[in-house]
Design a protein around this nucleic acid. Structure first.
Lengths: 223, 223
DNA sequence: TCAAAAGTGTTTATATTACACCCATGG
DNA sequence: CCATGGGTGTAATATAAACACTTTTGA
């Protein structure tokens, strides 16, 4: 490949992450507020350019730490966005990642020079006019998450250490955008033999408290 | 992004395709023979660099036409390969595609200046010492094909227009690397209501000829 | 004692698996 | 009439879906 051919020049490679978590029974995604042009003051998915001495996964984790202060996330690539006009300044190809973090592990570090103003949004509250094509990337990530929640063990990473059956069902319902029968859901999940009844109860007022479950240590896949 | 920062320089973007087809009841993949260094005389997956004015899908289709003479393929991205050492000359990120073509549509065009020496390999005959990391890409593409054959309608593209039930079962068995009961396989497939009995028979000698089926016009998804 | 949400079992329908014999063809 | 591979049905089991009342808690 002749790197001097103008057809190959000035192409950048970005990584971009849709980081999901669950807390208070809500599914949330992390957005960062842009302070510079273009798209100043618009929300975007955390993203950044790939260095030429690291693979994309390393780049994505590095960018997340630098830009959001969040470490120790689980990430998986899901789609490449390569429309030549997706960025107005130069041609940028974006490798899209789904990220998952357990809200118990959420300790936002001290701000650095690069840290952006970040916030967790409930999936329904994500703004529609995001920077670049990030709205499209977000929607595609949501779809990819549907598949992954059924076929992989990301649930274990997504949920806090202790959770109730109605919370678990709620996460499924939000992500898959459909409702389940309470009895069938519980029966199915318990017979998968992934959960352990901790014997503890949720602390809540006004109604009967739910049983707290956790994932069994050795449980791996849901399939 | 400051493109002059040395950390961002000299990164190339490739697309690389694992193109599958079925003929004579065999699943095959298209490889190209390298004539230049590095990896001279090794087999590789068809691939090439992305121009800065086209998206990756366009680039992949263009490269396939230029390098192999094959047009009208169905492609879908499946994984990005970004190990900084995957190419010895410069840092190249490869967007991996699965390609599917119906062997009826296989008319290799006239050779051009860029056309490489290409050949169809049965999956078991793919050489183990391919150029670059193409062996790894091929193996990962095979895994992605397993998922796609169960969850999408690529089967319709993969198979020739007319095919027999044993041929169809054989394609499943090769791709999924497991065997199915003849009666159950046929029953399941017929009740999916995707196939149409053409009333014609296979032309074959030495044993009972099989019924030729085709996909119904409007059949879409297998799920 | 009321409101709110959690917990629980049975029946029916559907899908999956296991399994063995006869059929059509060409040589 | 033999060898080769194609075609067929039924019973058993497992999985999924439908469905309504009782329990616990705090106010």
């Amino acid at each position: 490949m002749d790197i001097k051919n103008p057809l190959y020049k000035n192409q950048g490679i970005h990584v971009v992450c849709s980081l999901f978590t669950v807390n208070e029974g809500k599914v949330r995604i992390l957005l960062a507020l842009r302070s510079n042009e273009p798209y100043s003051n618009k929300w975007m998915l955390p993203s950044g350019a790939v260095y030429n001495n690291e693979d994309c996964e390393t780049a994505m984790k590095r960018e997340m730490i630098e830009k959001t202060g969040i470490d120790n996330i689980y990430i998986e690539q899901f789609h490449v966005f390569s429309n030549p006009k997706r960025s107005p300044l130069m041609r940028m190809i974006a490798i899209g990642y789904i990220g998952i973090i357990n809200s118990d592990n959420l300790k936002i570090k001290k701000k650095t020079e690069k840290t952006q103003n970040v916030e967790w949004f409930e999936l329904n509250d994500v703004p529609t006019d995001m920077a670049y094509d990030h709205r499209e990337i977000f929607l595609k990530a949501k779809e990819a998450l549907k598949v992954k929640i059924l076929q992989t063990d990301i649930l274990k990473t997504l949920l806090p250490k202790y959770f109730t059956m109605p919370e678990l069902q709620n996460v499924y319902e939000i992500i898959l955008e459909k409702n389940f029968d309470r009895r069938n859901f519980r029966k199915k999940f318990l017979q998968l033999d992934l959960l352990e009844n901790t014997g503890k109860l949720q602390e809540i007022k006004g109604h009967r408290p739910a049983i707290l479950y956790k994932f069994k240590e050795n449980s791996k896949d849901i399939i």
